[in-house]
């Protein structure tokens, strides 16, 4: 089931509980206990996942990625927003209350 959320740089997201994540060869692999699916988040996706371990606004996730990787701001923003939307669609992340 897909949900439609309008994400902005100010949206605060956090991980949904019930996932077991593990680092495998530099990439983050995760089991969702609720739906029994395994996911490969990759290296950049793994860092995005780590960045929302506690509720964080999208702009701080983008900043974290730009600190770790050689990437222009515009591309980082677009990719992080897209990836977070996928996490929401799979019910792996949730929009948190504003801090």
């Amino acid at each position: 089931m897909s949900t439609t959320n309008i994400l902005s740089l100010d949206t605060v997201l956090t991980q949904q509980p019930g996932n077991i994540a593990s680092d495998m060869d530099g990439e983050k692999v995760m089991l969702n206990v609720k739906n029994g699916k395994y996911y490969n988040l990759g290296e950049v996706g793994g860092e995005i996942w780590t960045a929302i371990a506690t509720p964080a606004p999208v702009r701080s996730v983008v900043a974290a990625i730009m600190q770790l990787f050689e990437v222009p701001a515009e591309l980082a923003e677009r990719d992080v927003l897209s990836f977070l939307q996928h996490l929401l669609d799979e019910d792996l992340a949730a929009i948190a209350d504003q801090p």
């Binding site: 395994y38 996911y39 490969n40 988040l41 290296e43 990787f69 050689e70 591309l75």
Partner: peptide
């Protein structure tokens, strides 16, 4: 030293 960037993708693995 920053790491090389690649567009993140959420891959669903075919393991049930």
């Amino acid at each position: 030293m920053k790491k090389e960037y690649s567009t993140p993708a959420l891959e669903v693995l075919d393991i049930k």
